[in-house]
Simulated assay, not measured.
Amino acid sequence: MVSMKLFDSERRVIEAAERLAAALGSDPNHTVAAAAMDTAGRIHEAVNVYHFTGGPCAELVVIGVVAAAGAGPLATIAAAGDQGRGLIPPCGRCRQALLDLHPDVFVAVPTDDGPQLRPIRKLLPDTYFFPDADARRMVRFNKRYYEAIATGRKTSTVRYDDPIAPGPAIFLFEDDDAHRTLSGTVTGVERHRLDRLTAAQARLDDGTSIDQLRKGLQGHYPGLPSEAEVEVVTFTVEAPDVMP
């Protein structure tokens, strides 16, 4: 699995979870802390509630805290154990809840190479999707594209192994100090083989050649085979001529 570089904002989420976990005392009913960042850059914190009847994990409690705050979909979540246990991965129940309620969240997990982020769908492959969850979707972009998307100059993106569904979505610009987001709509998703992708299919209209696009994709997705299927995603934004 390709490792994902942690942004500073994502590191802050991990640090918040570990800091709260370190502050937990000897109460056996509260042994895990969770922290989650919403699309506005706010970090929400919570702890688990252990009980023999099946008290909730810290990740589930923080989902409730986020809902109580009226926050939008979660961008990043992390959990840490008390007594110096550090970062811990979510259990199966939490993974299913996160996938259904925040399907685009990135989850921090411990690895031999240190903390890494995984899309929640990678932590629960081939799973059941709760059809009535009605989760608000999110599409991530590099922050350098904010102005082009906000002004309507950029209306498409090419993705690999990053399922995006048509419909309303929040456009999140990663590691943006201003935590700017845009509301928009994914209008279409087309699948094409990378080695057969044409400039017209890729909606190239900014002077980028199809060869440059392919090389850029293979640089962004290390090991991407030339025969891989990629998705061309088209979208619109609300009030694209309004700048902050």
Rank of each mutant, 00 (worst) to 15 (best):
S3F: 13
M4E: 08
F7T: 14
D8Y: 06
S9W: 08
R12M: 01
A23H: 11
A23P: 04
D27Y: 12
A34D: 05
A35T: 01
A36L: 13
D38I: 01
A40L: 12
G41N: 07
R42G: 02
E45I: 15
H51F: 04
V65E: 15
V65W: 02
A67Y: 03
A67C: 00
A68F: 00
A71M: 09
A71H: 09
A78R: 02
A80F: 03
G81F: 01
Q83C: 13
R85V: 10
G86N: 07
G86T: 11
P89G: 13
P90Q: 05
G92L: 11
C94S: 13
L99Y: 04
L99A: 12
L101F: 03
P103Y: 07
V105C: 10
V107E: 02
P110L: 14
T111Y: 09
D112M: 13
D112P: 01
G114D: 15
G114C: 14
Q116L: 11
P119T: 14
R121G: 03
L123A: 06
L124N: 13
Y128Q: 11
F130N: 15
D132F: 11
A133D: 04
A133E: 08
D134Y: 03
R136M: 05
R137L: 12
R137I: 01
M138R: 13
M138T: 14
R140G: 01
N142A: 15
Y146K: 00
Y146G: 02
E147D: 10
E147F: 06
S156C: 11
R159L: 13
P163A: 13
P163Y: 09
P166F: 03
P166H: 04
P166T: 05
A169S: 10
F171N: 04
E174L: 15
D176G: 02
A178G: 03
R180T: 02
S183F: 00
G184C: 04
T185M: 06
V186R: 01
V186W: 03
G188A: 14
R191C: 09
R191D: 10
R193H: 10
D195G: 05
A199S: 12
A200W: 00
R203M: 08
L204T: 08
G207K: 05
T208L: 13
D211F: 02
Q212L: 08
K215L: 09
L217W: 06
L217V: 11
Q218L: 00
Q218A: 11
H220Y: 15
H220L: 15
Y221S: 08
P222E: 14
E227G: 12
A228Y: 13
A228N: 07
E231H: 15
V237L: 06
E238N: 14
A239R: 10
P240V: 05
V242H: 12
M243T: 07
P244K: 06
